[in-house]
């Protein structure tokens, strides 16, 4: 971009400062208990001020309130954005940035201030404008501009409920010489798999196919696990396997609390399990809390896919 081109671009971009993205518009739904409850469930928020009417009636507020952090949710456009957003001054401005190569987008800051709590029955009104656009900046992501939108929320009486400032960086994405390492970093971690060799590969293959097998000596019929090439009882190299019914009992157990390992659920419960067939197996116990596990507990297992790449025996309380 020549200095002249930059000037021309900036003249067009800065013209958006102060432009209204939307006039004061009522939310499609009034504040209501159902949407509040959905929100509280998803967030795992048990705050009774949001969902417990009996508690709230006796509280300082005398009634339930909407979670302040829901403020922006009420005025969202909703499902139609799956088919794309309607054009408005903000989308026009973004399009202009894109035209000039500032295709990168990164939300960097969001600040909500609340002046008033709202309750079921209230209706939120939103108006929004483009509040500021920074000068051209060199950032770690690339050359770009920060723009900030200011959303102002009010209620049905015109009283101001709160504001939201959202700061976004529009930037020219840098050539990424380190793309390879970038890709590597972006991979979603999965559990550390077992390598598969001659002596154990068949066992894991069966797990992939939904079966828990136990190796058996063809000569003396003794079962063994983990799989090994020779029978320790009669030294035969001949073996086959039986399918386990995946019933068992806890011999011992623990829970790995620290360190948290990428790709694993938090606090996995692991156990040594004596299978009904007589061999021991290490696997996870799921479907109950750690505190409910005990030595001697009866378990029933199934083969489950636990992440994108891993299928494992998982045991539940019987």
């Amino acid at each position: 971009m020549t200095p002249e081109e930059q000037k021309a671009f900036e003249d067009r971009i800065y013209a958006y400062v102060g432009v209204k993205v939307c006039e004061r518009t009522a939310a499609k739904d009034a504040v209501n208990p159902a949407m509040i409850r959905h929100w509280a469930e998803a967030m795992g928020d048990t705050n009774p001020a949001y969902t417990d009417e009996t508690w709230a009636a006796n509280s300082r507020r005398g009634k339930t309130i909407a979670p302040p952090a829901m403020m922006y949710a009420w005025n969202q456009e909703g499902f139609t954005v799956t088919r794309g957003r309607a054009s408005d001054p903000q989308t026009d401005m973004v399009e202009l940035f894109n035209e000039y190569g500032f295709t990168g987008v990164l939300g960097t800051n969001v600040t909500q201030e609340y002046f008033k709590e709202v309750s079921p029955g209230d209706t939120l009104y939103l108006e929004m404008e483009i509040d500021s656009i920074s000068e051209r900046k060199a950032t770690a992501r690339g050359i770009g501009y920060f723009f900030e939108t200011l959303a102002t929320f009010s209620d049905q009486n015109g009283e101001k409920v709160g504001t939201q400032r959202f700061r976004v960086l529009k930037f020219i994405p840098q050539e990424q010489p380190t793309a390879a390492t970038g890709d590597d970093k972006l991979e979603v971690p999965t559990r550390i798999p077992s390598p598969r060799g001659h002596d154990n590969g068949w066992w894991w293959q069966a797990v992939d196919e939904g079966k828990l097998l136990i190796q058996r000596c063809k000569r003396c019929q003794v079962l063994r696990h983990p799989p090994r090439p020779m029978c320790g009882e009669c030294q035969s190299l001949e073996w086959d396997s039986i399918e386990s019914g995946m019933e068992g009992e806890v011999i011992s157990y623990t829970c790995l609390r620290h360190p948290a390992i990428p790709g694993y659920p938090k606090d996995p419960v692991c156990a040594v399990i004596k299978l009904a067939e007589g061999t021991n197996l290490v696997a996870n116990i799921v479907g109950c809390d750690y505190d409910d596990v005990f030595i001697g507990m009866k378990l029933k297992g199934r083969i489950e896919q636990v992440d994108e790449k891993t299928t494992l025996p998982q045991f539940y309380p019987a």
């Binding site: 009774p48 509280s59 952090a69 960097t108 800051n109 969001v110 600040t111 201030e113 609340y114």
Partner: peptide
């Protein structure tokens, strides 16, 4: 606790 009133959430992403 539930009687606290949230005034501001200021986040860097």
């Amino acid at each position: 606790g539930p009687e606290a009133v949230i005034r501001k959430l200021d986040l860097k992403l």
